[in-house]
Design a protein around this nucleic acid. Structure first.
Lengths: 205, 205, 205, 205
DNA sequence: CATGAATGAGATTTCATTCAT
DNA sequence: CATGAATGAAATCTCATTCAT
């Protein structure tokens, strides 16, 4: 007996569920959001959801995987188009500067990611997955930019590439996490200042 | 188990409960940790806990209030001893630099606070309380340092005090939140670099 | 245990729960009877019960609504078949006279209703609901009979219809409530005497 | 060692507790009212209450005993002063007619008694105690009046004394129980009509 | 595959009762 | 005797997961 529905159909359905789960987790948090919330928001039945995912945890995990790789793919594609280190760094900051962190969708994304980090920190396996994912997707990216920049003479030699990659994400994550909680946080102003400071520090004048 | 007890006794008991709650919330997170966990960890009966607190939420709230004011009081006392802006800023950074963020107790503290922020972000009233608490305890403190420094000529005039207060906590929070998740995060190195950048940016050379 | 079920099925299930709840409330009283009692008596799981009702209170309320309207519907149908006032009044009394108040089911019904009245008397909203329900279902019915009877000359003119409606239910309720407690109460004899007195008082000789 | 406090003191304390318990049971009902409610209302400590009563049930039982005998003693004393049956019956009705059933205290008393009857109906032993108490205090009283009246020619011979004693309390209880629930119940009017009907029926014209 | 009713473990909370002081 | 903190059994209710249709 051949499969009755196409893989495309299944993939679409999964995405629908993930998208609803995302909204629910953002609104209430993973623990407080219920499968019924997802049922209501998606219009997909409870049984169907369990056909596509093994558990609530499973939905969470898959959601985070998908999210991260999507973000990363978009990011990386654009960056590879730039040539100089300064352009690439500018681009990275500008992604965040062009964002309106106060529209619901973005706040939601920030919240869910932050919560997932917290959640993962309590689970050995997740911590490891998150760490390697971070290394692969986020740290190496900036490290590469800085190393290339140092070779081409754009970036100061005393800059430790890995450290400044960590520094970059620390600061960005810091701003983002403030924004989630404090509604009147001067997101763009702080980020602009951070960008200025960072560029000033790493760039050969 | 005395029936008529001193206020001291009651205060001590409350602290015991809060302290156990803290450990449990840190280990599992607020939602996942149960009252039974607190019972087991504290050795205090369920009923007794509810004699001291109205609900699990109440424990959480009181825990966070206590934590914040304690942190703040310690901080402020020391800061008021310093005279110059540079000394004060150095001191602030050094508090975090002197910390070992990898010992369980500190990681726990960071986790619980981060989770509380997230939790609060989903509740209008808590958001407001957190915002005003932050303004009162954390922002105004640094703002004052910077303003005083500008008057005395230590701090550059183009520095917007409020903005740099926001900036300061963004960066510190950012580093801290990375540390919770990524066990090998170069906490001290990143923080040192942040300190250098910040001081360089605000201080008149 | 079918997943997609007819409205009939659901209605039946609800009635099963209500019927079990009725027995449990009758046996122990609303406060003392537990959801677990209903679970045991009905053989329906706790979760299922909460799929059909929002709370224990909800069960109680719905039980009382259903009971009242059922009683009323049966009553009213029969009464409308009679033509003269005397026939109607006779019929009303005879309903209670034909009852065996000592069989468990009827005692149970009396108990539950009496307790519900008591319960309602401590709750503003319920008091109001009960009052309007009483007016609509029980008082107006007898008032109508008496008014019609006065028009046709059957009923004495000095009889205040509303007052005698109140009087009627007072006496019936009184007898019923004695019967619940005093097992050897001469229910039928007292009721017969009441009937005689009432008819003698309102009927034109 | 002689007792440290006098019996009088103890009696007074018991009465204080009973009086508070009465108020609490009236307000919330026996099951819902808590020992803490009584503590708060009476200002007497929990431990002290348990020094005077063995359990919450015990308070309830003793409260009801006290109440009934008090009511009865007052009643009986007055009745014995009257000579004719008609005077005695009039007096009995007038006690209830002179009552304002809408003031809190009286509503409370009615409620507590009604609830106690209900409560007792679910307990063999209590049922028996209540029955014999009723017989001794309430039924025999009226039966005696009627028998005496029949001897003296005041009361019709076809009146069954016991039955009419039952009838009397049925009707009074009926009116009272309506009044508890229906705030605008025409208590006095209904009672007056009942009195008229009853006297008309039993008295030789 | 989809459905959603059923399940029951487990969560929070209450409260009568005890007992050390 | 008085006190009220401590106890823990038991109540209500939730919700992830299953499975018959």
């Amino acid at each position: 007996m051949p499969p009755i529905v196409s893989d495309d159909y299944k993939e679409k359905k999964k995405k629908e569920i993930l998208s609803s789960a995302f909204v629910c987790f953002a609104k209430k948090g993973f623990e407080v959001a219920t499968i019924n919330d997802i049922v209501e928001h998606s219009g997909i039945s409870k049984g169907a959801i369990y056909n596509y995912f093994q558990s609530k945890d499973d939905i969470y995990l898959e959601l985070m995987s998908t999210e991260t790789s999507q973000t990363y793919d978009e990011l990386n594609q654009e960056i590879s188009k730039k040539t100089s280190a300064i352009e690439k760094l500018n681009y990275l900051f500008d992604i965040y500067l062009d964002l309106n962190p106060f529209i619901e969708e973005n706040k939601a994304r920030f919240s869910v990611h932050l919560e997932f980090k917290l959640h993962s920190s309590r689970n050995k396996e997740l911590t490891e997955r998150l760490r390697s994912r971070r290394q692969k997707y986020f740290i190496s990216q900036i490290t590469d930019i800085l190393i290339d920049g140092q070779k081409s003479g754009e970036i100061k030699q005393d800059v430790n590439p890995e450290l400044f990659a960590d520094l970059f994400w620390s600061m960005v994550d810091g701003v983002v996490s403030q924004t989630i909680v404090y509604e009147d946080y001067p997101y763009h102003e702080v980020l602009k200042e951070i960008k200025k400071m960072f560029i000033l520090r790493v760039l050969v004048q």
